[in-house]
Design a protein around this nucleic acid. Structure first.
Lengths: 285, 285
DNA sequence: GTTCCGCATGAATCGATAG
DNA sequence: ACTATCGATTCATGCGGAA
């Protein structure tokens, strides 16, 4: 079965109203940071950022399924030698709005671009804030396990006394079960710090993160045929990855050029008639 | 010339008053986190943490030189499935107190605490918040540059099995490509993400953080004969490193056992008579 | 002397059980 | 209902003894 993709041209504050309550499994997005990408999105001053974002996060809270997660990629701007505090203020405000701030993942960028400032080093990380509606949400941890260190190899050969002692300390029933868990183990669960390489190619699309980033979260929080939403799709990385992984992508962007580009590359099966009429000729090769 | 070391036994709120205005070049400290180390420091609840810390940071603001820096190692705890917000609230409160929040370094811990939970991964990072009095401060960036050629070689040799396995496992991570990039340069500036392991295990003096952590900041923010203060010295890691690097260490701790241990190992040239009388016998081998 | 292997131990977090 | 305590889970590291 072909994966359906929905993309919308317009302001997320308006277009999100078209989505049904409790209908999205995962939201992954990277909104314009304060005062960044001014030429494209108009630029939001740091002290207005929270007020600008709250109506959107309110809609996102409505459309997210109770078992779903919201991953927000955001970064503080440095102004006048000081880090802005609008990200922290946004977290506090979103909690008042009803969101749970579950976790802050850090994307540790191994090879970020060089640069030098008199009193500051290069920024080699990005925040990936996880918000939830409820304390219980779907998480498929096994999907993102990483190969284990050499430690496991020796472990498999013979179990140490420590294992036996620790296992003995439990109530007798659980003894055999745990040992068998260890024997098949060759992978470890990851941490909340992601060590991914950046993709340096693709100069066409600005501010795109590497595919491995949305891929990791899509693996972790969804299964096939689930729904993935990006209300600031930009060049559409999240949507392409979702479609390849057989999740239903939904994307919104206010910039017609992005909309056209994503529409042509995504080749969605269904889209609104309005969108078709308005941008029919854009897909010409 | 021998390096003078000053250590004090008592509450930082009181003992910091003994220090002169604008007298310290660098403060590096790791106070007890909220609800942690209850058996040693009593444990401060998250919602009281800001009020507890502000009198201390007020004193620190007074004693720091205008060109100095304050590095605060802290992390928020997870309670009831949600991350605490007290660190963010502390940053906002310290800005009102007059501090500039210049930067947030990330300590990416290679060996973080194990464990598995249904909806959470292991926490592999700590925050290292940099605060300043003024926008202009001393920073010796060249001191922490890493020589590229040699660094890449030793780095490759010392790379643990885990690193190799995980790097190879990533599709198109471009690891080899990065190496070739490194080799063409002599030295490179580091980033704001530090990848270090904790020093645990059977070592005599197991410390909360590894020596390389304070060492990095001491190199970056001070030169020889400068003054380094740790108002929560604990086992004294920061002070030992500072003394070895020929900076004047000043330490405070409220726990007599820590005080005695640091005093004996540091062998300070000068200390107060009170301290001598009270704890004379503690240095016996 | 190297290398290999066993081992204790962390600023952890959740859920169940107990007061 | 609410807080304190306890058990179960888990993995990278450096040290020390063995090969």
């Amino acid at each position: 079965m072909e994966i359906r993709a929905d993309i919308h041209l317009g302001d997320s504050r308006e277009r999100l109203r078209l989505l049904a309550d409790d209908s999205v499994d995962l939201i992954v997005t990277s909104p314009p940071y304060a005062d960044q990408r001014k030429n494209i999105y108009g630029g939001i001053p740091p002290d207005e950022y929270v007020d600008w974002f709250l109506p959107i996060s309110e809609q996102l809270l409505r459309v997210l399924k109770p078992i779903g997660s919201f991953i927000l990629n955001i970064k503080e701007k440095v102004t006048n030698g000081e880090r802005s505090t609008y990200v922290m203020e946004l977290i506090l405000a979103m909690r008042k709005q009803g969101w749970l701030w579950t976790e802050e993942f850090i994307w540790h960028k191994k090879n970020c671009y060089p640069g030098k400032w008199p009193n500051r080093f290069r920024d080699a990380r990005e925040r990936l804030l996880q918000f939830n509606k409820r304390k219980k949400f779907h998480m498929y941890q096994e999907a993102v396990m990483t190969p284990m260190g050499g430690w496991a190899n020796t472990r498999l050969k013979n179990l140490s006394d420590t294992d036996k002692t620790r296992d003995n300390s439990k109530v007798g029933s659980g003894f055999g079960k745990n040992i068998s868990n260890w024997l098949t183990r060759d992978k470890a669960y990851p941490t909340n710090v992601l060590l991914l390489a950046t993709e340096c190619g693709n100069k066409k699309h600005s501010a795109a993160f590497p595919e491995s980033l949305p891929e990791w979260f899509i693996k972790l929080f969804t299964k096939e045929n689930d729904t993935v939403l990006d209300p600031f799709m930009g060049s559409g990385t999240t949507l392409f990855v979702a479609k390849r992984m057989r999740r239903h992508p939904i994307g919104i962007d206010i910039v017609p050029e992005y909309y056209d580009m994503v529409r042509c590359r995504l080749q969605p099966i269904e889209r609104s008639l309005f969108d078709l009429e308005e941008h029919r000729e854009a897909c010409a090769p």
